[in-house]
Design a protein around this nucleic acid. Structure first.
Lengths: 172, 172
DNA sequence: GGCACATAGTTGACGCCTAAACTATTGATG
DNA sequence: CATCAATAGTTTAGGCGTCAACTATGTGCC
């Protein structure tokens, strides 16, 4: 993988060994897979965004933040939200500000660490999320209805492997 | 799928038939798959963005636009770019403005339709893209190296099916 | 010709997201 | 205990992306 320019030169020399043919195909294959993965993710995301907007006048990031809090009833630190949502801290600050001003979440200051807050759902936040979550779940099921359960399982398993290797790669 | 509230009520009645259990599992399965798909796409995208920025001081949308033009040597209309990149026209306008001011692309007015432009790579744009494309391809191969070729093929095939069904769903 | 409607592209307002700089607090180490 | 690095969170500047409103041009129909 390191010496692609060299490999290209050799290909031009019209002396394609099996190894090189395989490399080139694999390049093409990975690229195609990447584009398709991205396309699928974008199509689904666009659909979910649109419906959240149309039916609940809210956005995906807001929904995701509420979902995290619903899953952790004792609240989450800003930094934990940042990790779980895979976005930067500054971003969490902004979204939390909005949700707080809408009365859906509260920042509770942590007695043990005066730098930190614990963000929690308010009762209104819990109600609002419950309504949305039901609809959201149906949408997702509907969007994946084109695959059989076995196929979904297969993709899920393979993406698990991919995700692990990506996270390992990142650590390096 | 349409009567989830009703199904929930039945579940509460502690009378879970096989059908309902399967439904609930499938809900869970689709949601999990969606979250994982999104996570993988985001991890890869973040990695590619970071490297494009670090090594070429550019961004993914700019790169994607150049890639489309490279693939269509006779140029593309703004509207075609918008479709192929799966973003809105307004967005394409902004990115094209930047690339044009950097001298990497040009807008040529279409003699047959005075509303339309054809966007083309300049020689400088072609050179800049060529350098980046080689590196980009290597990165993607590297990022997908955690899967065997057969596994990549499998995911690719299943995502093709998913993509088709998503596009059909959207048309409705 | 003239009117209505569609299409190509741009603009403006706004939200998401990042990186980098900043403040405040904590904790570890001499 | 004093200092210095690490951590929690916020702010700022800027790019990406959307939608909706807008301009200008093309098209079809009478």
């Amino acid at each position: 993988m390191a010496d692609l320019a060299g490999k290209r030169a050799m290909l031009k020399a019209a002396d394609r060994s099996d190894l090189e043919t395989r490399m080139s195909d694999e390049h093409h294959q990975s690229l195609k897979l990447w584009l398709r993965l991205l396309a699928c993710a974008n199509l689904i995301e666009a659909e979910v965004r649109g419906r959240l907007r149309a039916e609940f006048d809210t956005t995906l990031p807001r929904f995701d933040l509420l979902a995290q809090l619903e899953r952790h009833a004792d609240g989450l630190k800003m930094s934990e939200l940042s990790q779980r949502l895979m976005v930067t801290g500054g971003n969490v600050t902004g979204i939390t500000d909005q949700l707080e001003s809408e009365g859906l979440v509260v920042r509770e200051s942590d007695p043990a660490d005066r730098r930190a807050y614990t963000v929690k759902l308010t009762p209104a936040g819990r109600r609002a999320f419950a309504r949305m979550a039901t609809a959201h779940e149906e949408w997702v099921v509907e969007l994946f209805a084109g695959l059989y359960a076995g196929e979904k399982e297969q993709v899920y398993r393979l993406l698990a492997k991919l995700k692990l290797s990506l996270e390992k790669e990142k650590k390096k």
